[in-house]
């Protein structure tokens, strides 16, 4: 009898954990070294190893352990209002100033980051900030269905809305909301020569079927011509530690 009670409680707890997308994401303890100043709106990611890619995805690093130096990365995707303060002719709906900036080419994204003393993140930096130091598939660790309502079409949200979907370093918007420009070219083993150097990597958005919307795993690599600008594509900045 006790055994069945235990099993019942276990099942109830498991189901409630799996279904509760609002549970808090466990955060890694990070100590910022003396002499390093973390600007407002950025997160310090310490130097060290992490697992990059997935063994079943041949266009990734297959789950290899990669080292990064310490770096800073924006906690949120770049907002429309913030970007418009840099590029005053950027046209957007004023009621959506805290939504992610969209319709931005790679060059425009890079220009913004450089103007603020930063740069676009590398793929390794982006993936580490998204997954931390374990081999999790989702920044928030557990799998959830995206809570779309069957509506087919991109639904951007305010960049600071989803505190239940943050990464273990407290970074928002990695795996949902807009895709983000990455500094690296899109390259992979066996790639056709004509394709090499033609595309930039974009990371962390949604994929869609007819009437469903899905999160993308932390290691999922998408690609885009650098001159493209689309309403599902934005960016965030990173910065090296001097």
């Amino acid at each position: 009898m006790r055994f069945f009670l235990f099993v019942a409680i276990f099942i109830v707890c498991s189901v409630s954990l799996a279904c509760n997308s609002e549970e808090k994401v466990s955060q890694l303890e990070v100590v910022v070294p003396p002499g390093v100043t973390v600007p407002e709106g950025m997160v310090y990611i310490p130097a060290g190893d992490f697992i990059m890619g997935h063994r079943d995805d041949s266009r990734t690093l297959l789950g290899k352990t990669i080292h990064t130096e310490a770096f800073l990365i924006d906690r949120f995707e770049m907002s429309r209002e913030k970007y418009a303060s840099f590029k005053t002719d950027y046209f957007f709906d004023r009621s959506k100033g805290d939504f992610p900036v969209i319709n931005i080419t790679y060059a425009s994204a890079e220009a913004y980051c450089r103007s603020s003393g930063g740069r676009l993140p590398t793929e390794a930096e982006w993936e580490k900030a998204a997954r931390g130091i374990d081999d999790r598939k989702w920044p928030w660790r557990n799998f959830y269905q995206h809570p779309n309502n069957g509506f087919s079409g991109f639904l951007p949200e305010p960049v600071n809305k989803r505190s239940e979907w943050i990464s273990p370093y407290g970074v928002y918007g990695m795996g949902h909301n807009v895709w983000e420009w990455i500094a690296d070219d899109y390259l992979y083993p066996g790639q056709a020569r004509a394709e090499r150097g033609k595309f930039k990597v974009i990371r962390g958005g949604l994929t869609q079927t007819h009437t469903s919307v899905k999160f993308t795993p932390v290691y999922f690599r998408n690609w885009m011509e650098p001159t493209a600008s689309y309403p599902f594509l934005g960016f965030r900045c990173a910065r090296s530690i001097e």
């Binding site: 079409g153 895709w179 994929t207 869609q208 079927t209 009437t211 309403p231 599902f232």
Partner: peptide, 13 residues
């Protein structure tokens, strides 16, 4: 129907 005003082709299949 359930389709967006924007209608930009999304990443997917």
């Amino acid at each position: 129907g359930p389709y967006s005003v924007d209608g930009t082709i999304q990443p997917g299949i």
